[in-house]
């Protein structure tokens, strides 16, 4: 029981890092090539939302038991 909790914490952190990293990185690349400066922030917000949404689906909507 406690062990599944432990796994969930690290999975949550992994999702947040992956979401922020991927879409923030995409925004950074877009900024770099399009010579704009707002897309990084936009991408980071999108990534954060994605990470939280995935956590919502995985752990909260259909909560384990």
């Amino acid at each position: 029981m406690a062990t599944t909790d432990d796994g969930a914490f690290w999975t949550i952190i992994a999702y947040l890092i992956a979401g922020l990293g991927f879409w923030g990185g995409m925004g950074f690349l877009a900024d770099h090539f399009l010579k704009t400066n707002f897309l990084t922030v936009l991408g980071m917000f999108l990534g954060m939302a994605t990470g939280l949404y995935l956590i919502w689906i995985r752990f909260i909507k259909e909560s384990p038991k």
Binding site: A14, Y15, I17, A18, G19, G21, F22, W23, L46, G47, T50, G51, Y53, L54
Partner: peptide, 13 residues
């Protein structure tokens, strides 16, 4: 939007 993040989670993060 979701699929690349999932993929990255499993294979990199």
């Amino acid at each position: 939007i979701l699929a690349p993040v999932e993929f990255l989670t499993y294979f990199a993060v």
